[in-house]
Amino acid sequence: MNDLAYPVAATDYPLLNIFWTMLWFFLWVVFLMLIFRIFADVFRDDRLSGWGKAGWTIFVIVLPFLGAFVYLIARGKHMGERDMRAMEKRDEQFRAYVREAAETPERTSAEELTKLAELKNHGDISDAEYERAKTKILA
């Protein structure tokens, strides 16, 4: 009998094989994430020359497992430091943007008095309210 003629049932693939398949799949995903992280670190490093970047890139592409492990041993400590500096720089840029966006432009006393006079002329505030606000602005 030809084994290809019969469909494969779920019972033909034991639970332990499913576990090992998932384990290898997730290890492969973790390895790919590590490779992309190494490439990002290589091209982010300003102290590394162009030849150094090319050398590490070729090494990691040609011998991925060995290249990744050698890179982590040789430059792993500084990867975290570069990430921290980049994160601090992004955080400071974000805080500066928020400070800039949250600033309210300073109005001069003349602008405030003009606005107050318009409110009084439109009848939005009474004469007493106008005088109190005017005294507060001029003080």
Rank of each mutant, 00 (worst) to 15 (best):
Q93K: 15
E92S: 13
S49M: 01
A10P: 01
T11C: 07
I137V: 15
D45T: 13
G55N: 04
I18A: 13
V70E: 01
E81G: 06
T57W: 05
K53H: 03
P14V: 06
E103N: 04
W24R: 10
V62W: 01
A54F: 14
R44G: 06
D83A: 08
D3C: 01
I137M: 11
F69Y: 12
Y6H: 09
T57Q: 06
T135Q: 13
V98K: 04
V29C: 14
F39T: 04
H78S: 10
W28L: 12
P105M: 05
L63A: 13
E100G: 08
F39A: 08
N121Q: 13
N121R: 14
F69K: 04
V62H: 02
D3A: 06
F59D: 00
T11K: 12
Y97W: 05
L63M: 14
R85Q: 14
R37K: 12
G50M: 10
D83F: 01
L23H: 09
F65C: 05
A10F: 06
N2V: 04
F19N: 03
R107P: 01
F39G: 03
A86I: 08
A68F: 05
N121H: 09
L16W: 08
L23A: 12
A68M: 15
E92I: 03
Y130F: 15
V98M: 03
F43V: 05
M1Q: 08
T11M: 08
G67W: 02
E81D: 10
V62L: 05
F19T: 03
I125T: 00
V8T: 10
I125A: 01
I73F: 05
E118R: 11
